[in-house]
Design a protein around this nucleic acid. Sequence first.
DNA 1: CGTCGGCTTGATTGTGCTCAACCCGGGTGG
DNA 2: CCACCCGGGTTGAGCACAATCAAGCCGACG
Lengths: 249, 249
Amino acid sequence: MPLSQTRNAAPVTCADCPIRHRAVCSKCESAELEMLERMKVYRTYQPGEAIVWAGEKVQMTGSVVEGVAMLLRTLPDGRRQMVGLLLPSDFLGRPGRDVAKFDVVAATPVTFCMFRKSDFERLVANSPQIETRLLEMTLDELDSAREWMLLLGRKTAREKIASLFVIMGRRDAYLNRTEPRGGLVFPFYITREAMADYLGLTIETVSRQISALRKAGLIDLNENRMVRVPDFAALIEESGDDSDGGVLV
Amino acid sequence: MPLSQTRNAAPVTCADCPIRHRAVCSKCESAELEMLERMKVYRTYQPGEAIVWAGEKVQMTGSVVEGVAMLLRTLPDGRRQMVGLLLPSDFLGRPGRDVAKFDVVAATPVTFCMFRKSDFERLVANSPQIETRLLEMTLDELDSAREWMLLLGRKTAREKIASLFVIMGRRDAYLNRTEPRGGLVFPFYITREAMADYLGLTIETVSRQISALRKAGLIDLNENRMVRVPDFAALIEESGDDSDGGVLV
DNA sequence: CGTCGGCTTGATTGTGCTCAACCCGGGTGG
DNA sequence: CCACCCGGGTTGAGCACAATCAAGCCGACG
């Protein structure tokens, strides 16, 4: 595991930022953007590197610009559950809390656009746009957490794995504006361990169920780190969910 | 199951409202309170009665004044998972969404202070206090959803049951300002079915594990619908969590 | 008195966990 | 260059925990 985090000065202006239209700052006007521009710092973390430790004081908040980070909760005996996934444009840090409740760890190389917590909170207090956007984003996260609870509490191992591929496929289709019906190919960088932590399974069970779905012809992992789903509707069927869940993301 | 919901005119003024200091309106000033006073309608539902059906259009939003309601998500084959619990002062309804994603069902007799969705959204748009409070409450819900995910994904049946009693005990201690350490007695109205839906278990497993905790002397259910916990620290130990989780609620 | 719903307990089954061996590819050092 | 190791992944055998199927209890209510 790498020992040090990389710190860069901000290489991108907000106007050119890839997450400009979806992040917490998406409703900001030019005056606010200028303030953010002055406050922001970019930081990059390597896979496995800790971004925040549970129980420690939080100094920084910010948005994921690129890559994926995981929120993890660990029991005293080491059992571990992922409780959140931060993708580009997602926000890290809870206004009003100064001690972290969860570990945050990079899943892939991940770049954050960060602010000092105190600076950001001052800005939020004076900027209804940011607060409104933060509320929208928090409500979305709560929705997906609830969907996730259904998966954790009631789905079988096979359904969990199928659901995960459905989620990843929908996400990719949404980002690339492709149609998820019919054949679908998307990349797949996550490790078996991360999948197991996400789904509340062991890595052995994850591996076995992936093999089973492959044998059933529902997914195809031949190339390196790419998945092909020949029949997306069939995979949805296997995930246990209503097939009419046409909402993306 | 009762077939009709009871509707009452609002019997309480906001100034006398039991949830005045904790609900979504807690930061409102007198002008806003007067508007709310004119908008609000009280509704009461009986146990098992549906308040909202998933997939239907949402007309009303509001706060729980008294009683408990459950958010439920159901798979096509009938498996059911509770994904939220609405207690007094909790808010029902997501600004910006007009179609419900979850069923909402009364767990006990429950009274809501409700507003027409459109009226409420207009008010929120012009009232930063309400929006700020809504953000705080949503962030709290997200935190507890994440704690819940750890329980669903990684805890054993016995730990789940112990955790549930710990949560209920803490909540009661918080509301009644008593000290949860040492002997603790609190009421316990929820059915086995609701416990099973909450914990991702079957009612038989719930029943067996409660019996086991009783035999182990960790809880005592002799009186009608009251629990006695002689040693709260021991119950926390059994729940698998860190014993230092001193945060209430 | 009979029924019904909520709950408990027993017997059995089965899914997913545990423990263990092994494969494969990439990096490192002799 | 090959040997070795190491981390991530796969597969197998056996087991344990919770689900399932089933019977019966108890209190409320008609």
